[in-house]
Design a protein around this nucleic acid. Sequence first.
DNA 1: CAGTGGTCTAGACCACCCT
DNA 2: GGGTGGTCTAGACCACTGG
Lengths: 241, 241
Amino acid sequence: MMAKSKYLVIADEIKKRILEGVYPARELMPDQNSLAKEFQVSRMTVKKSLDRLASSGLIYKQSGLGTFVLGNIPIKAAGDTPANAFNGLTEQHGAEKIESKVISFEVKFPSVDIQKRLDVAKDSPVYEIIRLRIVEGDPLILEHTFMPVNLVPGLNEEILKSSIYEYLHHELKLKFGGAYRKIRACLPDEYDKKYLNASEHDPMLEFEEIVWLNNGKNIEYSTSRNRFDKRSYTVLDVNDF
Amino acid sequence: MMAKSKYLVIADEIKKRILEGVYPARELMPDQNSLAKEFQVSRMTVKKSLDRLASSGLIYKQSGLGTFVLGNIPIKAAGDTPANAFNGLTEQHGAEKIESKVISFEVKFPSVDIQKRLDVAKDSPVYEIIRLRIVEGDPLILEHTFMPVNLVPGLNEEILKSSIYEYLHHELKLKFGGAYRKIRACLPDEYDKKYLNASEHDPMLEFEEIVWLNNGKNIEYSTSRNRFDKRSYTVLDVNDF
DNA sequence: CAGTGGTCTAGACCACCCT
DNA sequence: GGGTGGTCTAGACCACTGG
């Protein structure tokens, strides 16, 4: 295991100083040369640290002027669910609080749509999984997932009841490369009514996604739904030009 | 104006090669040293180009192995609306296709909530604007916006009918620093029914956001709604560890 | 004008992967 | 071992900002 990079250590330290008010919000913080001298590193390394903080929305750099500390974001709350986050529910809430009920677990040949979305041949089997995720006794999300069998050997109900991501990462040693998600509102269907206690006209928030591995192979296509009053998604957008 | 940086030029060229299939999907592309030699730059510069492409989801780099070209994203479509994009509707659709109807345009003292969200004093006036955005004759989005008057002097109905962003950027020379958005589903209210032709039980997709400038000052707090069947939002998430 | 951040270099060492 | 990408350096030049 490699030691933590200098630029990460420095980024953490600067972040700490910002959060503690050592570098106050809405003011300039020390310039890159001073920081480089203080931390005994080259300016490039300091810049890399600042780039990180800038892309997380904590500071804003302006050539010729300096580096501003930005303020807190008023509508940002601790319970927010970032729309770009890989960690499944289990990591977000902790394994104790979460429970998974397997509604359906089948293997089948993929439909034309699923062939396209997972980039698999028509005779290459896929799992089709429907799971209800329950947080602190409250039914939260209904997941409808497809995964190629050849990429996920040995999947079973026991795993589905705990954490698929855990299995993929630690047992199969797979690494995610990225994901593309679509968020929309929709009407409830029979499953939503049955499992999420949605009434006839409760709006549903739907989350459709494709996840791929670091080798480019698609590992998952899924649609997840939750009741409109249970969950929203957040996005941070940082301007970079 | 500065000339385009080398690393941007190189990133564009590599992107072009990927899209044209010179570097085929799901295969390794040339290593950084070869590219550095080809483009007559240092390896650091090539790496910077590749970092850009990696964070846009086009390639994936793995230490010790090489750089993979990733494939197309199946559910990604040309008409997708990225949840992280600053350009208003006008830029997304082109000024000809879009029309804005001003439902309400007022100046008032901010409520306690708005004081917090815009970080303004209680006696510092704010604009409250309700606009209906119509694309190709179709009512698409109902926007409810608050902006501090002192940051946006001279706002008038004429501007509201065309493009606020245009005014902010080109007339007032303001630059956005970032935005934080929450996406959720909700029930239609009277405005939605009246202006977006939502029926009693049509789910609505709501987009709540705060936008700040590069100096950290909050320029806008708004909630926008569209009918569930008219629009969805997309997010690209790239794994970086 | 001096100071800022952005870019770029040539070279170095490292951890990692495959053989 | 040989090749990959990741990090880091010491220094350089640039464009932009402010006084």
